[in-house]
C-alpha cells in the first residue's frame, strides 16, 4: 500500500497563483495508486477515475472461489474495445492483488473465447457489440462494467455515468446476482440501482 508523500502536496500549494491547478491535483490524489500525469484533460481525468473505480470494485464484490484454478491464478481485468485508460489502469493495479491473486489487465479487440476468463470486463462505450458481449458472458461470474448508456438494458451489471461533474455508478443487482457475484451492500449504498 502506498501513501503519497506530503511534501509533494504542500510544496505545490505554496504559491497562491497555482491554487486552482493544485486543487485538480488534490482530487486526483484521492484515488489510490495514481501518479500525477503531465498533461490532463477532463476526458483523461474521467478515465483515471474509472481505472481506480475498476480496481476498487475488486474490494466490494465477491467472486465465487471456484473461478481460480490455483492460489497464484491471476485476477484478470479485461478491457474490451478501445483502451481509453491509457497507462492509468496498469498504474492502478500495479503490485496490487485480490485475495493473494495478482491482478493482470488484458485487452480485447473483439469478443474472443477467452473473454470469460476475466473477472471484470470493461466494455468501452465505443464497442459496437455490447449486447453480444454481455450475452456471451451470461451465467459466468464476470463483472461487466461499461460507460455505455444502453448497457443496463442489455443486462450489464455496472455502468459509469457523470452527474454533477462526478463519476457515478449505476448497478443492476439482478444481473450480478444471476452471475453468482455478491455485490457489497456498501457499494449498493453509493450506487444508483437500475430498474427495468
Amino acid at each position: 500500500m502506498q501513501i503519497l508523500k506530503k511534501p509533494f502536496i504542500s510544496r505545490s500549494t505554496k504559491t497562491g497563483s497555482a491554487a486552482i491547478p493544485c486543487m485538480a491535483i488534490v482530487i486526483l490524489m484521492a484515488l489510490p495508486g495514481m501518479r500525477a500525469p503531465f498533461q490532463e484533460t477532463s476526458e483523461s481525468k474521467a478515465n483515471q477515475v474509472k481505472a481506480v473505480f475498476l480496481y476498487n470494485f475488486t474490494q466490494f464484490v465477491v467472486w465465487p472461489q471456484r473461478i481460480f484454478n490455483s492460489k497464484t491464478s491471476p485476477f484478470v481485468i479485461g478491457v474490451l474495445g478501445e483502451n481509453t485508460f491509457g497507462p492509468y489502469l496498469n498504474e492502478v493495479i500495479e503490485s496490487e492483488g485480490v485475495d493473494g491473486h495478482p491482478i493482470v489487465v488484458r485487452h480485447y479487440k473483439s469478443i474472443t473465447h477467452d473473454v470469460d476468463e476475466c473477472q471484470i470486463l470493461f466494455i468501452d462505450k465505443s464497442f459496437p457489440a455490447v449486447k453480444q458481449a454481455i450475452e456471451s458472458l451470461k451465467g459466468k461470474p464476470v463483472l461487466t462494467v461499461s460507460d455505455s448508456e444502453n448497457f443496463m438494458r442489455h443486462a450489464g451489471m455496472l455502468r459509469f455515468y457523470i452527474e454533477g461533474g462526478k463519476l457515478r455508478i449505476e448497478i443492476n443487482q439482478e444481473a450480478s446476482q444471476k452471475s453468482g457475484l455478491e455485490v457489497s451492500s456498501k457499494l449498493l449504498r453509493i450506487a444508483t440501482l437500475y430498474r427495468e
Partner: peptide, 15 residues
C-alpha cells in the same frame, strides 16, 4: 468508518 468505505472508494462525499 465501515459505512464510509464505499463512499471513499468511489469518491462519493455526499454519501
Amino acid at each position: 468508518s465501515a459505512n464510509c468505505t464505499a463512499a471513499l472508494a468511489f469518491d462519493n462525499p455526499d454519501d
